[in-house]
Structure formats: structure tokens, C-alpha cells
Design a protein around this nucleic acid. Structure first.
Lengths: 327, 327
DNA sequence: TTGTAGGCGTTATCAC
DNA sequence: GTGATAACGCCTACAA
């Protein structure tokens, strides 16, 4: 049974209002009484009950984060960025993992909404009006998703893809395959646009292999397909898929990068410790999370402000899975 | 401005008490009025405010999870297990990542405590009395940590290590090195105990390389050391460290497993997609998370019950980084 | 600078 | 089965 402000008030010989003022540092309290109150409070282990406080102030001191998959290093890192930024602001963090299922999103949001002052939402697919209806007044910043009229933080993955294609081209590759991720996902569109833009510019036809699960198993399918096309280079949706593809290609007797160059995307931590280390597109994942919190700050401070869309740069990192074509 | 129970009551022509009863399905309400209330509620977008509810019932409908590092796949998977189990129970999830810093734990717990009905805490190092003082009455289940008198869910990693050592021995290895993780961590102790137990049984001396960061960079140090000892096999603290070690060993011209067999621990998702795929100790990570929620259920139902300590089995998975010694 | 009192939205208790 | 009403713990005018 935690101590209440009444207990502290009684112990310190003041009223509950004074206790409240001492903690909210809102009204004026004399230094002396404040010290006395604080001393009694720590002695009794008191601090204000967030629920009671929220009921009256409307603020919970929490922010919410909704991601499709916490086990995906891409989102785990984003979550870490959010968590750190939240901690710096002395705010709690409510997390919901929707297991990549769009239909779980509305309930997740609803459960979270009333317990947070703001929401950071990584929704790869759901339509804008669905989001609108669900968030219903809760300040929301989209993560890795851009929708006109919404606050958002995302990465310029299209540009990264263009960098990748140009690099392969300059190495001499002309038969380049692309293995896409989940259909209709926002960042899938970004990738495709970047790739198509650059390929038009280079007057090059990309071999589009189709849509695959962004997992190692998806990568296995990809490898079998790409080997059949005779492509000399592969651009994969993400690092995990690339890992699966490489491991399958090697299993089938091909060498990477000698027989097949591979470029992936995300630059998760494991990308640099594979054999060979992955050439991949570096996406600022932590920063995206903390930036989202920063924007949320602004939005919460002024809910009427014009939405900002922050786009973080990406960067191709050359490691060991790319080389000149040898065939 | 969300609708309140008063709005719904007025619209449905009943009292707030009836609205409350309709939602809490606690008291008795006639089918007809309940339907009417619910209809108005959905029309107005009403549902009970958790803060107000918590204030009077004392229950928040949330559970809390504290982990040292969300970006560590080991804990990310545990978090997913917890999240899924929580969702099934229609509970929200509060997460705090302490960044592997014990000193951040007390504040994290304090911030979370009052907003959750129970706590799942993965604390690799903090002393029992510290935990006790901090949780202060909140039903708590420890995750991957055992302390007498506490509820806990952990994995039998010592046994996994013993399996690993016996397997290496039966392959013919006699010079076997162990690279430990963070000093004083609970699961580090488990590993060591398991290893020492099995080595005594086999009358074998293990080469203890020391303590390393459980990261790929730590693995690089490990590789350089182990190559100097002439060991034919390495047992690494976890998969990530093993990956770093293997990648360094290969860089230095050694072949795995021909020149050096490697066994890791955890069996994270990436363990099976490296080249070669990792022989490692499978730890039921998801299950640990969901089991913890199950125990928490019991504990919350009866806070006076005798603490249960659930220990999940582990299993050595033979993949491609182990073989008979060739030297 | 400090105290008094009303109310935030809900549930629990008591009448009816 | 339903309605008034008093809490829950706190913040915030307003009064002193």
C-alpha cells in the first residue's frame, strides 16, 4: 500500500496542496517547506500516483510505440532509439508489437491511446484514413512511413537503392536482379521507386524476381530464382533476406561475390559479421527512433503546428559481397 | 475529448452505474439495457478510461517488462513472447530497456511500478535485496535469473553447456577453450558451472580464456586468443560472440570447423543462416517470455502463494561449425 | 506562501 | 435490475 500525498502532508505538517506543489514544482513553495516535504516523502517512499495525476492533468508521462515486429533488428533498434530518448525526457514507454498483422493495429492503438501523451507508429501498410480514425486526437508521429499531412520520420531508402544500383553498374554489372519484400509495404515502394529511377537513368533493365518474405527463408527462394536467371548481381530487400540467399547460393556451389554480387539493405548489426561481410545500405535506425521522439515533443507542445516530415539520409556501405562480375 | 460514461448514460437513458456494469460485466444488467448501452457506447466511441479505472480498482490492465537490451535478439525474442501472452490476456505492455546498466534499473522499475499489475524483470546482475526494495509489493517474476524466494523463469543453460562439452569430447576434442561473457552475470555463472561440472566428469581441463563483451567485437578478441592456445574447439558465451570469433578466425586463414570447432549459445535466428551455420545451444526464448506471463498470472491471482521457479530445458543443436579435430 | 474545496472518470456500496 | 452517491489520489482555482 503506497503512501499518498495525505500521508506525506500529515507527516510534514502541511496540507496536501503543498505536497502537490512541492512535486509539480508548479505553484510557489518556500524552500524550507519544500525540503521538509521532500524529506518526508522519501522517508515514506511517496511519489505521485500517475493515474490520479493523469486523471486531472490529462498527461500520463508516457509515450507509445507500435511496431510490426520487435524481433526484427530493424525495429528493435528503432525501439532502442525511442526508449533512450524517452528516458532522457523521464517518460515511460508503452510498446505494442503487432506481429506484422495490420488487423491487430487498431486494437493495439486503442489500448495504448489513453495511457500515453503521444504515439510513435511504424505502420508499414495501413491506409491513412484507418490510422486517422484510430489515433483520434492522440499526437502521432509515423515511423518509416510518410503520409501527406502527418508528422513522420523516415529514411531515404530510395536514394540508397539508387546508390546501390549505380555502384553495381560502375563495377560492370549489367544483369542485375531485385528481390522485393512484402507487397504493398511503404518501404517496399520506396525501394522500387529508387531502383526504377536509377535504372531508367542508366538505361538498364532490372530483373524483378517478385515478392518474398523478408526473412532468411525468403532468401532461399530468391537464391534459387536468381541463379536461374543468370544475373551477376542481386539487390535484396533487406539484410536477412540477403543472408538467406547467400547461404543458399553457397550451398549450391556458387561463390559470393565472384559468381554473384549481393547488395542488401538496413545494415543490421549482423551484416558486418557474416562471411563475407555484407555490402548493404546503411539506414540510421536508432536515430530514426530518437528523431521521432523529438518530433513528437514538438507536436505535443503545439498540436496545431504544421506537420513536419523528417527524412534521414542513407548510405551504401561497401563490404565484401560485391565485386566486378567474373562471368 | 473522448466520451465519458456520463455521455453514454445520458444517451442511453440510464445511470453511469449501469454503464459501468455493462462494461465491467460485474454486476447484473439486463440483456436489453446492456445492448442499448453498448450501442450508444460504440456510437460515441466510448470505452472506460484506464486511469480512472485503475484509481478505484487498483488494477491497470498492464504488465511491465524490464530487460537489459532490446536489440539483443535474446531479449527481443523474450519480449515477443511476453507481448504475445499479454495480448492474449488483453493486457498492455510497458517496456523498459536498461541499456545493460544496473544503476538504471531502480528508476525504471519505479516509473513502471504504479502503472502495471505485475512485473517481469530480466536483471542479469543486481542483488536480490536491491530488487526486493525496488519492486516493493508489485508482483514480480524474474526472467532468466533465479533467486531463492522469488518467482522465476529461466533456462537450464548449465545443462546445455554440459551437452556441448560432452559432444566435443565425443568427437575427439581434448583441448577445448571457453570464452566467458560479462563477469558476475547470472547466466555466466550458469554456463561456467555446467561446463566445470561436465569437465570434471570427463576428467578434462578447460582452457578458460576470460571474460569478454558478448558482442561480435568481443568475439574478435576471443579468436585471437584461442588461436594462440592451440585449442581445437571453442565454446563461446553466445551466438553473437561466436560469429565475431569465427569471422576473425577465417580472416586469419583458419577454417571452421576443420581447424577449429565452435559451439555457441542461444540459437538466435541468425545462427542458422551464417556460413557455416552455427552449432549452438537452443534456448527457448519465446517460451521463457510467455511462461513468465503465465507465472505472473498465478502470482497476481494469489500473491501469497509459494514462489515457483520454472526451468526450461535447453538443447544442443548440431549444425556445421563442429566436427572431429583434424590437427 | 499556504489551506480549503471541488472535480477528473470510474467503480463499489447501498438503497430502492 | 437499476439509480444515487461516496470514494480512489491528485491538481488547481480561490480564498486567506
Amino acid at each position: 500500500m503506497p503512501a499518498t500525498s495525505r500521508d506525506v502532508a500529515r507527516a510534514a505538517g502541511v496540507s496536501v496542496a503543498t505536497v502537490s506543489r512541492a512535486f509539480s514544482s508548479n505553484g510557489a513553495v518556500s524552500e524550507a517547506t519544500k525540503r521538509r516535504v521532500m524529506a518526508e516523502a522519501t522517508r515514506l517512499g511517496y511519489y505521485p500516483d500517475p493515474a490520479a495525476r493523469r486523471l486531472i492533468t490529462g498527461r500520463s508521462g508516457n509515450i507509445g510505440l507500435i511496431v510490426p515486429d520487435l524481433a526484427n533488428p530493424f525495429f528493435a533498434d528503432a525501439a532502442k532509439g525511442v526508449e533512450r530518448a524517452a528516458r532522457q525526457r523521464h517518460m515511460g514507454l508503452f510498446i505494442s508489437d503487432t506481429d506484422e498483422q495490420d488487423r491487430l493495429e487498431p486494437e493495439a492503438v486503442r489500448r495504448i491511446c489513453r495511457q500515453v501523451d503521444g504515439l510513435i507508429w511504424a505502420s508499414p501498410r495501413s491506409a491513412g484514413d484507418v490510422l486517422k480514425e484510430v489515433t483520434d486526437g492522440v499526437p502521432t508521429v509515423l515511423l518509416h512511413r510518410r503520409i501527406p499531412g502527418w508528422w513522420s520520420v523516415s529514411a531515404d531508402i530510395g536514394d540508397g537503392m539508387a546508390q546501390a544500383l549505380r555502384n553495381l553498374y560502375s563495377l560492370g554489372h549489367r544483369r542485375i536482379a531485385y528481390a522485393g519484400g512484402p507487397e504493398r509495404s511503404y518501404s517496399g515502394q520506396l525501394r522500387l521507386e529508387g531502383l526504377l529511377g536509377a535504372s531508367a537513368e542508366l538505361d538498364l533493365d532490372i530483373i524483378r524476381l517478385g515478392s518474398f518474405a523478408p526473412t532468411a527463408d525468403g532468401g532461399i527462394l530468391v537464391a534459387d530464382l536468381v541463379l536461374a536467371t543468370g544475373a551477376t548481381a542481386l539487390v535484396a530487400y533487406n539484410d536477412t533476406m540477403a543472408l538467406g540467399a547467400i547461404s543458399r547460393a553457397v550451398e549450391r556451389g556458387r561463390r559470393v561475390p565472384e559468381d554473384l554480387s549481393v547488395i542488401a539493405c538496413d545494415d543490421i548489426a549482423y551484416a558486418r559479421m557474416t562471411i563475407p561481410p555484407l555490402t548493404t545500405i546503411q539506414v540510421p535506425r536508432h536515430e530514426a527512433g530518437s528523431e521521432a521522439v523529438a518530433l513528437l515533443d514538438e507536436l505535443m507542445a503545439d498540436p496545431q503546428a504544421t506537420p513536419k516530415e523528417k527524412i534521414l539520409p542513407t548510405q551504401l556501405v561497401i563490404r565484401r559481397t560485391t565485386d566486378v562480375p567474373r562471368v
